[in-house]
Write a protein that binds this DNA or RNA. Structure first.
Lengths: 161, 161
DNA sequence: TTGCTCCTCACGTCACGTGAGGTGGC
DNA sequence: TTGCTCCTCACGTCACGTGAGGTGGC
């Protein structure tokens, strides 16, 4: 979808308005155009980019998919598919597969984030209570109250990649 | 901490071993050295990098801080502070401030992640149920069962940056 | 007429990945 | 002796940020 249809009656948006309305920078819009994710109309004498309301929806859709963890490359594939696949069935299945993959990833991230928050909490508690925290890890580990949750002392055990 | 103390009796690790034990790539270790986050001992005739157990702990610490959301620049600042601040008090306060900031950020991320998961769920449900999903957004919006949760239809309202 | 907006290069950033082409140690 | 590991450039990647230097529209 490289070239937007010429204007009907609608008053077109300038790139700065698009950026403001979509919550992105002007540079981002130009970058997406370069990647052929977004088109623009340049039929006016100034050769400045003009955008329709449909383009704004398009841009918002890209931001939405980005928010769902898709890379710009993945988003591009989905857009291409939409062009080649008017029935939408292949696209529907692709989106479904991607979304379910992203969901699995998000569940892992949530688990990691929760573990991370628990770790942060005890690190904060440790920094507030332990006197000579600089000695970590050291001789005081044996008597340390944080030993059960400290991942640092197990550093001697090997890890696989 | 650029130059590691020469070896005592300890048998030193090669860069590949370090990488395996810390779960990073060889390139990552060289990159950290370039950023002066990590040192290495090069006193052997081959001029190859050698590492002590202490270096391995150091590298793990960097990975730990990275896992806590700190950038390599922030980690570098903390390391520098450790060198200039033997008492550790300034460093303790800095770490505390950083951790509490990271905790606030993590709580926001968790809320976003939960919202994201809810959105993914209804998108998946929509893709499984709605017939002509390609029409979104369109005339069917008015009668769509997903209208209450769809953020796409409100796209007409402006947003601030 | 003035300043805000737009334009196109093109280099910078972050944290590495990835060859190229060559040398060293077990 | 053979191959695995190490070395140093140096360009590539991803999603833009950030000037430089100039032109256009309200």
């Amino acid at each position: 979808m490289k070239i937007t249809a010429p204007p009907q009656q609608e008053k077109l948006l300038r790139i700065g308005d698009m950026a403001r309305l979509a919550g992105v920078t002007v540079r981002t819009i130009r970058y997406y155009e370069q990647l052929e994710l977004l088109g623009s109309y340049r039929g006016n004498p100034s050769q400045h980019r003009r955008y329709s309301r449909r383009d704004l929806l398009y841009l918002r859709r890209i931001q939405q998919l980005k928010g769902y963890g898709l890379s710009l490359r993945e988003i591009g594939e989905i857009i291409e598919l939409a062009d080649q696949d008017p029935s939408g069935e292949k696209r529907r299945l692709m989106l479904l597969a991607r979304y379910e993959e992203k969901k699995r990833e998000a569940l892992v991230r949530r688990a990691q984030l929760n573990a991370y928050l628990r770790e942060l909490d005890w690190h904060i508690a440790q920094l507030k209570r332990v006197g000579r925290f600089q000695a970590c890890p050291g001789q005081e580990c044996a008597a340390c109250e944080f030993r059960p949750v400290c991942r640092f002392v197990e550093a001697e055990s090997g890890e696989k990649r």
